[in-house]
Design a protein around this nucleic acid. Structure first.
Length: 814
RNA sequence: GCCAAGGUGGCGGAAUGGUAGACGCACAGGACUUAAAAUCCUGAGAGGGCCUAAAAACCUUCAUGUGAGUUCGAGUCUCACCCUUGGUACCA
């Protein structure tokens, strides 16, 4: 008879709640603390298969750790601010708060039905004033220390909807909602100065035991480039053009200068040029194109500033100045020296504009590099190509003939340049012209100067008397209550900040709040932070590698500098899980009709079978994609039924065979399994953990009888994976308390007295030998020679060489 | 383009430099059944040989993207190339 999973799950879940099993005692000194974190979800409503994969499998690990004696903190919360709630408000007129809390309520139930062992007593909800009070407090700290800055920046703007769009709302340059082409609009915005921490964010990666691909993705996101600032005077004027280059060795080949259209000097020089109109037209044309559009259209365009020129500081020659949008104002200095001979983009531009191309580096071959006399034997002639490698300098004055790499910094010194490091990383734009977010705790005095709202006025509540419908202004601007509140507290002429914070700010510190979720006096708890941080292991999705993970690391470094947290890297280990694909191997999507609804499988086979299948589908420590096998969950249920039968088998024969009895062979199997399941779990390889359990069950089934202790140990080891059935079977076995309170079986492995050894001749397998573990090589060889296949192949010849690896292999080489 | 990870049966995957394909799915044969489902048992990388009425067992060759190399021995280490996935890209 198949077991009734619905009944078992209900009873087990009620039992756990009754026992309050998963509450972590943060002050407990008797056990080693382990902080296991999984990214808190956005409360979108129903749990999909991705949620199951994220939470159910991480839960397996939480349970494994508890069984092995760790004091496990496994908290959960909700990343509850964000756009979907506001969209629902605009579309259906529902209150975002109501919408959000209804979803949270639904997800709490669903997470419980999964059998997840979250400690709900530590729950945090990002949109709860008791939480966002401290988001605001932390923002104010950053503001006080000059790390939050108010400045102008371009935002995506939909002219039809009269609203600012988030990057994700812009699809191929068009508004997600109405399809209107998106424009850029300049607004004053709040930035967090993450670039100040670029160097440390980079350096901190070095010692983190994260997977290389995660670290490398962060490195390239930060994008460090070593180079130099060089100054090019403007002929006949006082101004100088400061450029950034990573290739100062090519300075002698710089035959023109390019300024970004937004570069300050362009408007400054406008009156000095003879083609003012042409330049103004060019600038306004490029302004209409977003940065993305500019880069999609790689055809280079630009206009020369007629009548002005710059002076190459090395050659002292006058060179033309261009405005072109292939140079970005936001990187380096917004100006480059163009070396068409040795830079692909400059080459392309020079070809188009028919500008001279001056070669200053002659390539050297690998052979020449090794030959110390290469200096005399220049060179591979180049013409009509762009060469971007190193080589021997030519046409470079006193530096000609030297190796370009070696001479690079001497050239910088010679022209009075400055060595510098640039980063691709930009400051973090955190203001959103949105309603459903954390209000930025800033007010403006009558002069328009921003001030942080003092802590005693926090939480700075999100007003409720607002109009969500896009009107071209931030929604908070429509709140009378907010205006009155500011005037009431700060006085006439003071005005509120109308923007709210990017939700990534909320999620940059939530893991600190779990340590002290309801305290109204502090953002966290110093003693608990000391004990529980850094987080031992953080499990999440690879989509958060560059944004969330970097923001959280930045926040922690800032708080560390302010002596608010005791650590400067938040996550010791980080694992990115993979993606569950549809049965066809494609990404799940409604249009493809390949979406797997976990509820269907839970209903039919039970939560345990779904958990087990997700653990078994593939290694959890690799961000691969795994197609969902439609028969997979059924096969897991089959396995669980077999375990159930095994316990029933014991039940039928318990009168004859009971107690602590474990047969020696089974003892060995149990010991091996307990080590394997735990070790592979530590490596997040739950697929092989499950396989080990299956092997054990195969062995137990093959035996004619089974004892209570054997069953009990199996059930304890199964419990992290299939918590409900394990609880049920534990009760069947007459166990005390909950199976989830039982210690992991640690039966010592009985050391084998004999080993199987593979016998090879010339590396080919010729037989198998059973030898005592301490058998010497001579005995192994003597015994091997008696194997007929070995003797045949050897044909009387003496082995020239003998490789003997005790317990493994004997290889006779002739 | 650059950077990173990866390429093993029909499928998901397993293998501290030491019997490649654990475990499972799908498949085939059998048992049970009036029948089916469920369950249980058995089989299997591909090919060849030997022996057969047929099979088992046995022997053997080829097999971890391709090609070289290191090694007594390579899925694993080294080099080159091909392909897939992910990140990033007028970043000077």
């Amino acid at each position: 008879m198949a077991y009734d999973h619905r009944d078992i799950e209900k009873k087990a879940q009620e039992k756990w709640v009754g026992l309050d099993l998963y509450r972590a005692d943060l002050a407990d000194e008797s056990r080693e603390p382990y902080y296991l974190l999984v990214e808190f979800p956005y409360p979108s409503g129903d749990l999909h298969i991705g949620h199951w994969y994220a939470f159910a499998v991480t839960d397996i690990y939480a349970r494994l750790l508890r069984a092995r004696g760790k004091n496990v903190l496994f908290p959960i919360g909700f990343d509850a601010f964000g756009l979907p709630a506001e969209n629902a408000a605009i579309k259906n007129g529902v209150d975002p708060k109501e919408w959000t809390y209804k979803n949270i309520e639904r997800m709490r139930t669903q997470l419980a039905s999964m059998g997840a062992s979250f400690d709900w007593s530590k729950e945090v909800v990002a949109c709860d004033p008791r939480y966002y009070q401290w988001t605001q407090w932390l923002f104010a700290k950053l503001f006080e220390h000059g790390l939050a800055e108010h400045r102008e920046a371009a935002v995506k703007w939909c002219p039809k909807d009269q609203t600012v769009l988030a990057n994700e709302q812009v699809i191929d340059g068009h508004c997600e909602r109405c399809g209107t082409p998106v424009e850029e609009k300049r607004l004053t915005q709040w930035f967090l100065k993450i670039t100040d921490y670029a160097k440390r964010l980079l350096a901190g990666l070095k010692d983190l035991p994260w997977r290389e691909e995660i670290k490398e993705a962060q490195r390239s996101w930060i994008g460090e480039s070593q180079g130099a600032y060089l100054e090019f005077p403007i002929a006949g004027r006082d101004e100088k053009i400061k450029i950034f280059t990573t290739r100062p060795d090519t300075l002698f080949g710089a035959t023109y200068i390019v300024l970004a259209p937004e570069h300050q000097l362009v408007s400054f020089l406008l009156d000095a040029v003879s083609n003012k109109k042409e330049i103004e037209d060019y600038i306004s044309a490029t302004a209409k194109r977003t940065e993305r559009e500019r880069s999609e259209n790689k055809e280079k365009t630009g206009v020369r500033l007629e009548g002005v020129s710059a002076v190459n500081p090395a050659t002292k020659e006058e060179i033309p100045i261009y405005v072109a949008d292939y140079v970005l104002n936001s990187y380096g200095t917004g100006a480059v020296m163009a070396v068409p001979a040795h830079d692909e983009r400059d080459y392309e531009f020079a070809k188009k504009m028919e500008l001279p191309i001056l070669y200053v580096i002659n390539p050297i071959t690998e052979e020449q590099k090794k030959n110390s006399e290469y200096k005399e034997k220049i060179t591979v002639p180049i013409e009509g190509v762009c060469y971007t490698g190193d080589g021997i300098l030519a046409n470079s004055g006193e530096f000609s003939g030297r190796n370009s790499e070696e001479a690079m910094w001497d050239i910088v010194t010679a022209v009075g340049g400055e060595r510098t490091t640039q980063y691709r990383l930009r400051d973090w734009l955190v203001s959103r012209q949105r309603y459903w977010g954390c209000p930025i705790p800033i007010v403006y005095d009558p002069d328009g100067k921003p001030h942080a709202i003092p802590a005693e006025h926090l939480p700075w509540l999100l007003p409720t008397d607002v109009d969500f419908k896009p009107t071209g202004k931030a929604p908070l601007a429509s709140s009378r209550e907010l205006q009155e509140r500011v005037v009431h507290i700060f006085g006439e002429g003071w005005t509120p900040e109308y923007d709210t914070l990017d939700t990534f700010v909320d999620s940059s510190w939530y893991f600190l709040r779990y340590l002290n979720p309801s305290d109204t006096r502090d953002f966290s708890d110093a003693a608990h932070m000391k004990k529980w941080l850094p987080i031992n292991r953080y499990s999440g999705g690879s989509e958060h590698t560059t944004m969330h993970l970097l923001y959280a690391r930045f926040f922690i470094k800032v708080l560390y500098d302010l002596a608010l947290v005791p650590i400067d890297e938040p996550f010791t280990e980080r694992f990115n899980r993979g993606l569950i694909m549809g049965p066809d191997g494609q990404k799940m999507s409604k249009s493809k009709g390949n979406v797997i609804n976990p509820d269907d499988f839970v209903k039919k086979y039970g939560a345990d079978a779904v958990r087990l299948y997700l653990a078994f589908i593939g290694p959890y420590n690799e961000p691969n994609s795994y197609p969902w096998n439609l028969d997979g969950v059924a096969s897991m249920r089959k396995f669980l039924e077999r375990v159930n039968h095994l316990v029933d088998k014991w039940g039928r024969m318990k009168s004859q065979d009971d107690g602590d009895f474990i047969r020696p062979r089974i003892r060995q199997a149990l010991a091996k399994t307990s080590v394997k399941v735990a070790d592979d779990g530590d490596r997040f390889k739950f697929n092989t953990s499950v396989a080990a359990l299956m092997i054990l069950v195969n062995e137990l089934e093959a035996a004619s009888s089974v004892s209570k202790t054997e069953c009990a140990q199996l059930v304890i080891m199964l419990a992290p994976f299939a918590p409900h059935l394990a609880e049920h079977l534990w009760e069947k076995l007459g166990g005390e308390g909950s199976v989830h309170q039982q210690a992991w079986p640690v039966a010592a492995i009985v050391l084998a007295t004999e080993n199987e050894i593979v016998v090879q001749v010339n590396g080919k397998r010729r037989g198998l030998l059973v030898l005592p573990v301490d058998a010497p090589e001579a005995e192994a060889v003597a015994r091997a020679l008696h194997i007929s296949a070995v003797a045949t192949v050897l044909d009387g010849k003496e082995p020239k060489r003998i490789i003997f690896v005790p317990g493994r292999i004997l290889n006779l080489v002739v």
